[in-house]
Design a binder for these strands. Structure first.
Lengths: 211, 211
DNA sequence: ACCTGAACACCGTTCAAGT
DNA sequence: ACCTGAACACCGTTCAAGT
């Protein structure tokens, strides 16, 4: 039943399965059964599991570039770069462990890479040299990836150690001699706010490079 | 022969194996045979594979904090934070896929977390509020993690597609309509230099938050 | 062209048994 | 206390065979 397996349906089901059960449970057999077929059936549409993972990455990155290209160029480079960072973060957040799994992966689709062109145009148009524009995108990407990896690790830490991040338990676990660490833990606010603040710092640094 | 397997020897051998053969080849059986014992022997010293991976993370992070505490406080916060970033990067670089594997992981040793205390002291002493100091360390950590993930992915891309990153092939693969992307690719310099430049941007942004 | 059934080599883990 | 041998359930992948 529900036949007509296609490459796209496989990728979509794989992303669903990843969100439901996590990376360890993303197995060829579980994926196949979710699609109502036997495991070997998938090998007709996909060379091997690695190719499936690559396809998933490409799908996610294509969503990123689609979302990015829907952003109308705004008043200045600062808002544009901020929007870039926010979109990248929110697309990573859609998928369990998205930043760790889908960052720094090679792309099997040239269009994904070519989407960078528009952003280099905007930034060089705003007064950045090409090298600076390239650095800018790299830097913001690196920050977002690192930020969301931490964020997702903390969020869905699931399973083994549920209240490692409960403040009281954490304070006790830290013991003596870490008063600032404890106090900082209690100050720690919402992920969105921390992201905006830290993104602001990066943008300030970039602004300092412009005439 | 060569008995006397201990927890530390297991972790060290696991890190060696990771560097030699990569994450996929880091299997309990391969690790055991490298230590001259059968696979079940490891389960006397370690509860399961996840605990082994946690122990590896803790080991790596302890090296980071050791390296960090050997840095004498310098003239100003800027050099201190720069040194923090450089040490974190170089320790990640010691291990294949180090940034992806060892970032954002939970720590099984309170001392590793407590090492943060010294850095919060330095930064608050330099005029940052506690919240700003916490943001500062988070931001630099996030940047380094994201940067090194990309760097290591590119570096040892090994296996399947060896010259995806050869410039000529890449230009051809990109096709038409991505002239800035191509030009930026040719401008791209050494990883150390890109790291220092981008770290400098982050530090400039942090400086803008100080009185 | 697309899928199944059976099989292969390998994996993490357990457990009785040895020393 | 520490390790082995044999076994279990599961994994990715292949391949002949079905339709």
């Amino acid at each position: 039943m529900a036949k007509g397996i296609t490459r796209e349906r496989i990728v979509a089901a794989a992303l669903d399965l990843l969100n439901d059960k996590g990376m360890d449970a993303l197995t060829v057999r579980a994926l196949a059964s979710r699609l109502g077929v036997g495991a070997p059936a998938l090998y007709w549409h996909v060379r091997n599991k690695q190719e499936l993972l690559d396809e998933m990455s490409t799908f996610v990155m294509r969503r990123v570039t689609d979302a990015l290209s829907e952003i109308a160029p705004s008043a200045g480079w600062r808002d544009d770069v901020a929007a870039y960072g926010r979109v990248l973060r929110s697309e990573y957040l859609r998928h369990r462990d998205g930043a760790r799994i889908f960052s720094g992966t090679r792309f099997s689709d040239p269009d994904v890479v070519k989407a960078k062109e528009r952003w280099l145009e905007r930034l060089t148009g705003a007064g950045f040299s090409l090298a600076e524009a390239d650095d800018t995108l790299d830097l913001v990407t690196a920050f977002v990836v690192g930020f969301v990896i931490e964020e997702q690790e903390r969020g869905q830490s699931g399973g083994g150690d549920p209240d490692r991040y409960s403040l009281a338990e954490r304070d006790a676990w830290l013991g003596e001699g870490a008063e600032l660490v404890k106090a900082a833990g209690h100050l720690r606010d919402d992920g969105d706010q921390r992201f905006e603040r830290q993104l602001g710092v990066v943008l300030d640094g970039l602004a300092a490079r412009l005439p």
